[in-house]
Structures are given as C-alpha cells and as structure tokens.
Design a protein around this nucleic acid. Structure first.
Lengths: 193, 193
DNA sequence: CTAATTCGGGAACGATTGTTCCGTATTTTC
DNA sequence: GAAAATACGGAACAATCGTTCCCGAATTAG
C-alpha cells in the first residue's frame, strides 16, 4: 500500500538524545532537531508528535539503555565492590575524555524540567527509585558475601551512592577536568565500604 | 541634573535571582522579568544591559550572599562537625519545606549553562574553588581540634562534602520530599567524619 | 500499470522571543 | 524658574520559536 519508512526510528531517537543531552530541552530548537536528526520537519512531527513528546521518548530510551547496562553489570559481577568502583571510574573517564562534557542526561533533565513538567518529574522519580533499588540489592549481596562493610544499612548506602553519582555528573557537566578532584571524591566514598 | 532611580537595584536583582532560580535562564522570558521585577522593559534594559548581563549579575550576587553566610557560619562555629551538620540539615529543611523546590541556583546554572557560556563557566568554577577552600580550611581546623577524624586528608574530604552538597541540591530540585531519603544520605556522609 | 498510500522538502503560520526606540513625565542642578 | 537629564510606559522591531500544511516524489499491493 504505502512506502516504508526511510529512517530507523530508534536511530533517530539516539540522535535526539545526543542533541537534547547536549543543549537541554529549552536550548534545543526545532531547527536543531531537523539538522541533527536529518529528517524533514514534517517527518519529524508526523513520527514523534511534538517537541515535548520527542523529548520524553528520548529520555525514556536513555533511561532504559542505562538501566539495562547497570543491571547487566551487577549480574555479571563477581565482586560487588569492584563493580561499584567500575561504575564510578567509568563516569570519571567519560567526564575527562569527552571534549564536550554532557554529564548525565537524566540529571540534566531533572534540574531543568522536573519542576515544570509532571511527566518528566515522573520519569526522574521512577528512575531514582529503580536505580536505588538496584544499588540496594547489590549492596545487600556485597554485605552478605563480606565484600562490603555492613556498618551502614544497605538502603542508606544505596541512597548515598546515588547521591554521589549525581554529584559527580554535575561536576562533569560543569566542565571539571582535573582528575585529582574526582579521585579525591572517589577515595572518600569508597572508604565507607 | 537628573532624577534619581525609583527602584533599588539590589532589590531588583533579588527579584531576578528568584525568577531565574525558579525557571532557569532559557525558561525565563523578558516578559517574565518585567512582570516579576516590576520594572518597565526600558528601565530593565537601561539598568542591566541585556538578559545575559542581568543573569550574570544575579548569579554573582547569589554567590556572594551564599559565600558570606558560609564564611560567617564557620567563623562563629565552636564545633566544626556541628557546623557541617548544620549546613546539610539546613539544605534538607529547605528542600522539604519549600512548596516549590528550587534546589541551588549555582548548581542549576552550572547544569544549564556552564557548557555554553564561558562567563557562567568561570563563575561556577570560581565558586567551586572558593567553597572547596572554605570546606578544606574548616575540615583542617576540625581535624586539629580532634573534632573530625583525620583518616581522610582535608582536601579530599572537602571535595567529598562539596559533591554531596551538589547531589542533595539536585535531589531537591528533582522534587524529592521524603525526609528519610535525605537522612539516610546524611547518615552515610557523617559516618566518615 | 494502476491505485493507494505516505514519504519528505519547503513554504508559511501565528505566537513569542530578546531588544530598541520614542514620547512623556518627573526630577535635579544652576 | 529654566534647562538639562533620565526614568518610565508602551509601541514596535526583526528574528526566531514550535507547529501546520501543501504538494510532488517515491514506494507498495493488487
């Protein structure tokens, strides 16, 4: 009946993640999206509705990607403590190597939009809860196997980890490029485990 | 020669801080500023130049206010550890009580603008350095008097404190209203001191 | 090949953006 | 009291915003 789509929707979404992540929601214009996604205005609006819907879809996709890799990391980890250090070290590496540092798309969106868009607020809040649970279960496993100190209860530690992860992503977004700063923070964090 | 200003420039700046803090730079329109500051467009532009200049002036004023109160807090503090807990507890109280939570104007601006505006990036970076130094000196004093453990070096602890402060402000901005979440994080943080 | 369908480029929409300009009112100095 | 100076309100600016619409081109099924 009709012709098939000439572009891959998921690939377009990945492009949208890039530009929204870099410029933020309010900082990204419709023209920016047309330029960066390589689609015409009409195709863009026909496919995704409007800018807000496209943003929500992008953020949800980003969230899924991150949660999947986080879950996988802990599933395959022999040592929980090592896995946790790996997560933070990876964040530091990204912060240092990216010529333009984008921080964390979820954190950026939380700061820019959570107050003003209930739909974004829900995504942010859900994400926080899920990530916290993943951390919490990991910490519990680590404590049972004696890899992590049980002086702190797991839930408290999980929230603490999440908080420091946010902080580091803000630091990266702010353009911090001094490795020593990150290393100092990590040293303090891991003295707790 | 000429008539005097009918409004107080600092009061206007405080109003500008409020609206920029709440809505962000890109989210605040010229009309928003006119409505909120109670000035005419012409007075606004005559006095402050343009939107970017007004924003910079607002952010600098906010920074000065916060640095002053931070410095004063540590100067008058008998116990450094107590002073540190006070800072965090105050942040938590603000996060919980504000009907609309604005987080920290500096953190918000860092996330939204540091990548795209070198002038903002410099303010953010300067602020980070100064706050870090204040924390560092406070920690040193606390360690010398035995109020704070010296298992961690002062610089590292200062950066760690700064990082968690950022994290908590993001959490607040994201709308977290569960006191237990903040308390858990604080408990973990202060187990390090 | 024909008919149905939908793609995608580009023009165009009204609304809003940040900014400028002008005219009047007001105030101050001499 | 006259003259100089500036604050102020509001109209107006061009540019850009997000969004819609139209139309020829392309692709599919029968």
């Amino acid at each position: 009946m009709a012709r098939t789509k000439e572009f891959n929707e998921d690939q377009a979404l990945d492009k949208a993640i890039e530009i929204f992540w870099h410029k933020g929601y309010n900082g990204t214009s419709a023209q920016d999206l047309v330029n960066h996604l390589g689609l015409s205005r009409s195709s863009l609006y026909d496919t995704f509705g409007d800018k807000q819907k496209l943003f929500v879809k992008s953020l949800k996709r980003y969230q899924k990607q991150n949660l999947d890799s986080l879950t996988e990391l802990f599933e395959n980890a022999e040592n929980i403590k090592t896995a946790l250090t790996e997560i933070f070290k990876q964040a530091v590496i990204e912060s240092l190597q990216d010529r333009i540092t984008k921080g964390c798309f979820m954190v950026n969106s939380a700061v820019e939009l959570a107050m003003h868009d209930p739909e974004i607020a829900k995504i942010v809040h859900d994400n926080q809860k899920v990530v916290e649970d993943i951390f919490c279960n990991a910490v519990k496993k680590g404590q049972e196997s004696g890899q992590i100190s049980d002086r702190q209860d797991a839930r408290s530690l999980a929230r603490f980890i999440f908080n420091n992860y946010s902080g580091i992503r803000v630091l990266a977004r702010a353009g911090e490029k001094d490795k020593q700063v990150y290393d100092d923070i990590l040293k303090a964090i891991f003295s707790l485990f």
